[in-house]
Design a protein around this nucleic acid. Structure first.
Lengths: 137, 137
DNA sequence: ATAATGCCGACTCTATTGGTTGGGATTCGC
DNA sequence: GCGAATCCCAACCAATAGAGTCGGCATTAT
């Protein structure tokens, strides 16, 4: 149960973009250098984020990446979900009958709680919050 | 970011033990059958739980496993930690200088929050809570 | 002695992670 | 049009972890 580097890097990159939102796109090498992320790897990460509609890219000279939405409209949970898949920790939490013992399974209580704790924590912070660092502990 | 089967199984087994605490040890095959867990795999899981001091085993005929402490004294977090390693999701959360950019890193705020949300959710429930199912949603 | 049980080490198979490499396709400035 | 900067993409690779399995040994009640 560990956050992948992919996800760490991705969030850092998004925060970087949020903090350098001057209207013109930021080239990948700049982000990579600024955040010490291996450039080719970052490229794959940004591809995912683009597919998820979180960043938009412009090609060609003086191209680069920008946030697709205002930073205040991007929750950290969006970023994590785009990179890590659905936040749900265990398959059986949405009761779709996948687990035969679902109703008699006391453990589900735990996973359900955990799920909502995680979503709460991640969806309650936006990129803007992070750039302002105005998050209460 | 997904809970391993190991961990799912382990928690189920612990709940089973908590619910069948009649003073005499419960043999592994019984747990395995009752919870539909492949027996050899469960064996490895119980080994970890024993090393962590959460269950105790008695060998020989009519041996088996028992909780090492009363169910009310075992938090779910204890079980998960024993099976999944430390709950911390990202290396840099305890500030041990491992990450050079630690103080300027806005993302840490997120991971720290997430960390405490997770510990809160998992350490706030004990095995007894689960057997009684008296957990508020 | 035997059977039931736990203990343990070695093994396989698969998917994921964390990358790298190499080549395209676009677009700007000249 | 040319070249440089940039994004786009597919293929590849090594290491690790997850999920089990297998076979044998140690212990103990009967």
């Amino acid at each position: 149960m560990r956050i992948s580097s992919r996800c760490e890097y991705g969030l850092r990159a998004m925060v970087y973009l949020a903090g350098h939102d001057s209207g013109r796109p930021v080239p990948l090498p700049e982000i990579a250098a600024g955040e010490s992320i291996p450039a080719p790897f970052l490229e794959r990460i940004l591809a995912r984020l683009r597919e998820a509609g979180l960043v938009k890219a412009t090609r060609g000279v003086s191209g680069g990446y920008q946030l697709a939405r205002p930073a205040a409209d991007v929750a950290v949970g969006d970023v994590v979900t785009a990179l890590e898949g659905p936040l749900s920790l265990v398959g059986c939490v949405p009761d779709d009958g996948a687990c035969a013992r679902a109703d008699s399974c006391a453990s589900r209580i735990v996973w359900r709680r955990l799920d909502s704790a995680i979503s709460g924590a991640l969806n309650g912070i936006t990129l803007e919050d992070l750039t302002r660092e105005a998050v209460s502990p």
